[in-house]
Nucleic acid binder design. Structure first.
Lengths: 193, 193
DNA sequence: AGGTGATGAGACAGGTCTGTCTCACAGTGC
DNA sequence: GCACTGTGAGACAGACCTGTCTCATCACCT
């Protein structure tokens, strides 16, 4: 028994599935395709994940962790709250420009698993709420809690909308306008009552 | 031969497919399910639509037409440009509250058909660009074209983001904040340079 | 009445899907 | 040497998918 290589295999399956789901969607990507690309036996996959749905949840959670790590690193670079927000928008702008950008995996998961009771739906909600909470925490350094809550929701909507437009090939325009709008919103929220 | 009833059948298939796609997604909804729900023969469906993909495009175009009609009617009610914009946001707020709301069918289609060459992808792009153009036309009554272009993109992003949040059960908060942000953006765009 | 063309119902083909099962093999402790 | 345990490879089951085909039926026109 070698637990460490076993975990390596498991992680390898997750990352391979992630790449395939991102490109072709969840329902369109079959198990056979995943194990062929990952070069593992079918039983190996089913020993690690009881079903395809559980694998999807695992992929989403993995992606959410990586996303959080990247934004954590970014947050340490920014000094002022405005800078931190701006850096998050810039990060999205760079993401949109990547050749392997295919839209937001979480938004796609929401489209394919629309039932709120479904574990995949819940994984999506976790990620979006986490991003919303991150934005709110930053904004609370600039404005009272109530306003930060509204502003965080607005910024999240701008980001999600920009991601959708980027998927349609208008990422540059979208992120520029979203960034500018975000600063307007912050100014309006912290300025007059 | 009765051409009128035939068209009725065709339209009935489109509407039935629309309801099913909205609830369960595109890949998850089989042809068998559609014809059973619509109570037509399989050959009837394939005589009207050469393939499932073509049916999907037809459904999206049908939905886009209906959406445009509703916003046209709304636009005639509003008097000032601000009112017209506000009415569009209000319409979305009412949509989010409907019990049969399941998110944006076009966003879902984008998630399942991510290839820009695919006819379904193109149908989605048509609808989003149409909404963006509608917003821009209204905004151009208040501000120069360049600014109206940016503001229209921003408003579209707010609407798309709000729709995604509404799908996650936060429609009320989302539309309220989006509406407020939209007015802020408009004020900032028409005010100082 | 008889011919014609559109339609409904469902069998069918060929492929793909998820998930299970069997069997061979490799490493480990005794 | 030998039992034991975890793993790889792939056959298999059973369901579902899209799209085609056959055949009976029915309205309409002459």
């Amino acid at each position: 028994m070698t637990p460490s290589p076993a975990s390596d295999k498991r992680q390898h399956v997750v990352e391979t599935a992630y790449a395939l789901f991102k490109r072709a969607g969840f329902h369109s990507t079959g198990i056979d395709r995943i194990i062929a690309e990952a070069d593992v036996a079918k039983m190996t996959m089913y020993r690690h994940f009881p079903s395809k749905d559980e694998l999807i949840v695992e992929v989403l959670d993995y992606r959410a962790r990586r996303f959080d790590d990247q934004l954590d690193r970014l947050a340490r670079e920014g000094t002022t709250p405005e800078q931190k927000i701006a850096k998050i928008f810039d990060w999205h702008g760079r993401w949109f420009r990547r050749p392997d950008f295919h839209g937001c995996l979480f938004a796609h998961a929401l489209a394919e698993f629309g039932d709120p009771q479904h574990p995949v739906f819940k994984a999506v909600a976790r990620q979006k709420n986490s991003l919303r909470q991150r934005l709110q925490s930053i904004l609370e350094q600039m404005m009272p809690r109530g306003r930060a809550e509204s502003a965080a929701t607005t910024l999240l909507m701008l980001i999600e909308g920009a991601t959708l437009m980027a998927h349609m090939g208008q990422g540059d325009t979208a992120i520029r306008d979203a960034r500018k709008a975000a600063l307007d919103i912050i100014a309006a929220s912290r300025g007059p009552q």
